[in-house]
Design a binder for these strands. Structure first.
Length: 260
DNA sequence: ATGCCAAGAAAGTCTTGA
């Protein structure tokens, strides 16, 4: 079961690039972030025509997450549980049933948190505390669980081309990394680092200052696997070349293959 | 790089991103 995460930075602006990538990459599941669309305006027929089931959790202008899946999507949850006041669309869950096992999927768009310090950074850290509680709850089911998306976290210095430029940034601050590790330490395996060591592996390049051409990137899109999911991991890749195409997102897809 | 590019909402030029 091929499961991808992709921050598309606006569905309207990414119809061509996203469609081309889906046709080539043929993921069974694609967890999308920053659809920047309300549910009613999401062009679901573009994906249904390709054989995908579509579930969205959108909002006007900003944020918004979606799941595309060739397998039926069951037990959909929209919004990160734990705060009824939170109106930002950053979390969606669903279950798919593969040939060998069911898999619980969480698609997430973790808050950026800049500028920090400040209220946006407080929101980021509070959101991560809430995510940890939800993750702990889901782990109790002891079925394969995949939490994938734009974490807006640079886990370690080797995950940035210029780590010194990010030292004071909400993506790399010690408090951010600590909150990320607290989630990991519930028992998750970060798929990419389970398979690939070393620097120069990125999932985001800024549109400005020729960041892509200079490979001035950061790795902030991650797939976290529960123990039951980690045991099924067969492959993990970053589709970096997508970033060099016409009208790209500033993020690229990251995907895993699970023996599910 | 405390905003070089991009997207969205809107019809000016903001806000947001990371």
């Amino acid at each position: 079961m091929k499961i991808a995460t992709f921050n598309i930075n606006g569905i309207k602006a990414r119809i061509q690039a996203l469609g081309d990538w889906l046709d080539e990459s043929q993921p069974d599941v694609a967890l999308l972030q920053e659809i920047k669309s309300v549910d009613e305006n999401f062009p679901r027929e573009l994906f249904e025509d390709r054989g995908y089931n579509v579930e969205t959790h959108g909002q006007k202008s900003f944020n918004g997450v979606a799941i595309l899946s060739k397998l039926p999507l069951e037990d959909v949850v929209r919004g990160l549980p734990g705060d009824d006041e939170d109106e930002q669309a950053r979390w969606i869950e669903a279950t798919v049933v593969g040939d060998n096992t069911a898999v619980r999927l969480c698609g997430l768009y973790l808050p950026n948190g800049n500028p920090c310090p400040g209220p946006k950074y407080d929101y980021k850290l509070a959101w991560m505390t809430r995510m940890k509680a939800r993750a702990a709850e889901l782990l109790q089911d002891e079925i394969p669980l995949v939490m994938a998306g734009d974490y807006n976290i640079i886990p370690q210095d080797e995950d940035a081309a210029r780590p010194e430029a990010w030292q004071e940034d909400a993506l790399a601050r010690p408090e951010s990394r600590e909150a990320y590790r607290k989630i990991l330490h519930l028992g998750f395996t970060e798929a990419f680092r389970a398979r690939v060591n070393g620097p120069e592996h990125y999932s985001f390049w800024d549109y400005q200052a020729g960041a892509w051409q200079r490979n001035d990137g950061i790795r902030i899109d991650h797939l976290l696997l529960s123990p039951q999911a980690a045991d099924l991991l067969e492959d993990v890749q970053i589709d970096a070349a997508i970033r060099g195409r016409e009208k790209p997102s500033d993020h690229v897809p990251v995907w895993i293959d699970l023996a599910a």
